[in-house]
């Protein structure tokens, strides 16, 4: 039963596709930055740790184990259901975004392994019309959830979005309930969802699936708010404090679990999934043997805990293993 199309893309093509112009400087501290330095640091300034935008292929490169990425719903292409026209036709804006980014949409979905863990991974790309959520983004999210459910994988999504895509009108607003309903399918299977909120995540994406994750992480300095500081200042004539709506403020306000440096995200995601899975032990009737096979990336206590979880995973058809092992 092939409900979605799988397309293999080579890992080689999964490095940030946008070359840094000559003479680029860090927008925060001003030191000169080269493409080589940025690729090495996952686009974090080595001088001040400012997190520069990382595009979707770069995200996949940073998170998925080499060679493990299989794209889901890659054949979906955006359409122009409203024949939307502002100062330019939407269809023209779409073509331009596709040409500029080399992507078909603002969201890439796929299955992969993250340090060996089978995952369903979704990444947004802010370069593509501000990472806005239209019908294809919502449908790819839905297909990604179905892929997670089918293979019993954990769901991991990295967001970066200005919100709903205006040019698809009410249909883009409907992607909010749609993605929320899709997550019910995941929850019913007891599968975990970890979201990583990157700069910026606002509007309809933050107000739907992004904030419904079991564990929410954010990158340092990321702007995370519903309305956006400009709208707030215009509407309420309030002067907003420094750092308003940023990841660190959201952490203080109880809206997320942790702020994680980009270089540590992969490890933190894996560790979070491992701990979430550890709860399976409560369902065990027999005590666990300690002589389990150790998975290749682990060692010591970590590996033992993991091995224990692995045995349980076999018994409980867990997402730790997936069906393709």
């Amino acid at each position: 039963m092939n409900k979605y199309v799988t397309v293999q893309i080579t890992q080689k093509g999964a490095v940030p596709s946008e070359p840094v112009e000559q003479g680029k400087r860090c927008p925060s501290c001003g030191i000169p930055l080269t493409q080589e330095v940025l690729e090495e640091s996952l686009f974090v300034c080595p001088g001040c740790e400012h997190h520069l935008p990382l595009d979707a292929p770069g995200r996949i490169h940073a998170l998925a184990d080499p060679g493990s990425w299989r794209e889901v719903a890659a054949d979906l292409r955006p359409e122009d259901p409203l024949s939307f026209w502002d100062v330019r036709p939407y269809s023209e804006r779409l073509e331009e975004a596709q040409a500029d980014t080399g992507l078909s949409e603002a969201f890439l979905a796929g299955t992969c392994r993250i340090n060996g863990l089978p995952a369903a991974l979704g990444v947004m790309d802010f370069r593509f019309l501000g990472g806005s959520m239209g019908s294809v983004v919502g449908e790819r999210f839905h297909q990604l959830v179905l892929a997670a459910v089918e293979d019993h994988r954990a769901l991991v999504v990295v967001t970066s979005s200005g919100g709903a895509r205006m040019q698809e009108g009410i249909l883009s607003l409907m992607q909010m309930p749609k993605t929320v309903v899709a997550l019910d399918l995941l929850a019913e299977e007891g599968l975990p969802f970890v979201s990583v909120l990157a700069h910026p995540t606002t509007g309809g994406v933050l107000a739907s699936f992004a904030t419904l994750a079991d564990v929410i992480m954010a990158e340092p300095g990321a702007l995370l708010c519903f309305a956006g500081p400009r709208v707030i200042e215009q509407t309420t004539r309030e002067k907003l404090p420094e750092g308003f709506g940023r990841a660190e403020a959201n952490l203080e306000n109880g809206q997320l679990d942790m702020v994680v440096h980009r270089r540590d995200i992969k490890e933190r995601v894996v560790e979070t999934l491992r701990l979430l899975e550890g709860g399976v032990i409560c369902r065990l009737e027999e005590p666990v043997r300690e002589d389990e096979e150790v998975l290749p990336w682990g060692s010591g206590a970590f590996a033992q805990a993991f091995a224990r979880a692995k045995e349980l995973a076999v018994a409980s058809r867990s997402w730790l293993l997936g069906r393709d092992t």
């Binding site: 606002t202 107000a207 904030t211 519903f226 309305a227 709208v231 707030i232 309420t236 309030e238 308003f244």
Partner: peptide, 11 residues
């Protein structure tokens, strides 16, 4: 769209 609403987790 107010600061207090955002801080209270509007989204």
């Amino acid at each position: 769209p107010g600061a207090d609403a955002e801080e209270g987790g509007q989204a």
